[in-house]
Amino acid sequence: MASQGTKRSYEQMETDGERQNATEIRASVGKMIDGIGRFYIQMCTELKLSDYEGRLIQNSLTIERMVLSAFDERRNKYLEEHPSAGKDPKKTGGPIYKRVDRKWMRELVLYDKEEIRRIWRQANNGDDATAGLTHMMIWHSNLNDTTYQRTRALVRTGMDPRMCSLMQGSTLPRRSGAAGAAVKGVGTMVMELIRMIKRGINDRNFWRGENGRKTRSAYERMCNILKGKFQTAAQRAMMDQVRESRNPGNAEIEDLIFLARSALILRGSVAHKSCLPACVYGPAVASGYDFEKEGYSLVGIDPFKLLQNSQVYSLIRPNENPAHKSQLVWMACNSAAFEDLRVLSFIRGTKVSPRGKLSTRGVQIASNENMDAMESSTLELRSRYWAIRTRSGGNTNQQRASAGQISVQPAFSVQRNLPFDKPTIMAAFTGNTEGRTSDMRAEIIRMMEGAKPEEMSFQGRGVFELSDERAANPIVPSFDMSNEGSYFFGDNAEEYDN
């Protein structure tokens, strides 16, 4: 993207840094990872977990959730003011799984939030270390993106479920800051804005008074975040219109849905970061690795190297396929839920299948599930090659597409044709070009129609051997075009429920 120079890199967003050079960025990201790792080690000690239990991804998720809940100030305040039966607002906890007599047992633990905050700050040299908290939120978000298709949420806001490739980060909490905003897809931002506008339509006082002023500035800020994701002048001009509207209503909703559809071809720039579970960072720190000293990046080879040398386990339900569970977590670790499966298959070195073909449910185990038949197995999170994460949407291309997802959002900077089903997408653009945004709409449609099938995206960008740390010898991959490109292809993934 041309304006790259004016933006802070995501590592800076990730670490609240002012302008830093590459070495400083690597050190501050490393410091953040160190903090998460030290916190995780301490929690495993508190909970008396064995090494194996500490490497269980379900335990990692519970521990991450506990610290996120302990620092969720708004919710904590709300819980104190609106006490609900049987919930102690000062405590947080969740299921911890232990191996007892050759069987997995679930144990519900409860801790004072104050105590968890103390352990977290102690692991982070006394700081609140917001960057580390956001990092864990993005890992949870990436896992949700890989596990669930947001059909219901899309339909509720009037969008087409086939636009799911635009929904990265749709389950990120509001408090995820600049680093969170960077990884949100165009569809996620559109959905947040539509929800806001709908509230304004239904509630006369939404934009009024002292609160209304705050609401208005939040609305304009979200519009600017979305505008910054678009790469064409016409899309940005249309966002200006939406932002400046005196009284946002149905016309703005129409414009936003139009823009979301246009992003299936004229893709937005959305950041991709490899955020790993805390149970990967903990053992690495415990083994003596100093992330701050060595430096770390979320968008280069580092996460690949770390996963190459990590042992992570997962509980497996009786009829689940461990290899499929591994694929789910591998995609989440690489922030690749909406990437082209052919690119992923090449990088991973084994075939990556669409969601609907995987015999696996989510990673988390519900409290009512029976533990008797639970097994555990090693997650295979290694890769054959590594590639640089991208934040450009890439230019655009036609490809055989599917009944489910009709476009992709690249996660890796790797040369390819970008699949999208042009006739299906263009069919949504018939007729409606009147109104105050008509010239911009016409211009956007013209650009979409001009998108050429034979153009290559990320020209000359390749993948790298894991021994090639400096990215000196790019390998331009070859793809098996007979395979499906979309992950949520004609899909039956479970729906995400809060």
Rank of each mutant, 00 (worst) to 15 (best):
A2K: 00
K7F: 00
G17S: 11
R19W: 03
Q20I: 01
S28I: 00
G30V: 04
M32W: 04
F39G: 01
I41P: 10
K48Y: 01
L49K: 03
R55V: 07
Q58F: 06
V67H: 10
S69F: 05
A70E: 09
A70K: 02
D72T: 08
R75F: 03
N76E: 13
Y78F: 15
A85K: 10
K87F: 00
Y97G: 09
K98A: 06
V100R: 11
V100H: 14
R102E: 01
K103S: 10
K113P: 07
I116L: 11
I119T: 13
A123E: 09
N125D: 09
G126H: 09
A131C: 03
N144T: 08
N144S: 05
N144I: 13
Q149V: 09
R150G: 12
T151A: 14
M163L: 12
M163W: 08
M167I: 12
G169M: 08
G169V: 09
S170A: 09
R174I: 04
G177L: 06
A182I: 02
A182N: 15
V186F: 13
T188D: 06
M189N: 02
M191K: 09
M191F: 03
R199C: 09
D203Y: 08
R204F: 11
F206Y: 13
G209S: 12
K214Q: 14
S217N: 15
S217G: 02
Y219H: 14
M222W: 07
N224E: 13
G228V: 09
T232H: 15
Q235N: 01
R236E: 10
G249S: 07
L256Y: 01
A263P: 00
I265Y: 00
R267A: 03
G268T: 14
G268H: 11
A271G: 15
H272W: 04
H272V: 01
P277E: 04
P277H: 10
A284Q: 04
G288K: 10
G288C: 13
G288Y: 09
G295I: 10
I301A: 12
D302L: 07
F304R: 00
K305A: 08
Q311K: 12
I316Q: 02
I316V: 13
P322S: 11
A323R: 13
K325E: 11
S326L: 10
Q327I: 07
L328V: 14
A337V: 12
A337D: 03
F338S: 11
L341S: 08
V343F: 01
K351S: 06
V352M: 08
V352D: 05
T360S: 14
I365R: 00
I365N: 10
I365W: 10
S367I: 00
T378L: 12
S383H: 02
A387G: 15
R389F: 07
T390H: 05
R391L: 05
N395P: 01
A401C: 02
Q405L: 02
I406T: 14
V408Y: 06
Q409K: 00
Q409Y: 12
V414Y: 00
Q415L: 14
N417T: 12
N417C: 03
M426A: 11
E434C: 09
S438C: 01
P453H: 15
M456G: 15
V463S: 10
L466C: 02
P477R: 00
E484C: 00
G485I: 00
G485W: 14
S486R: 01
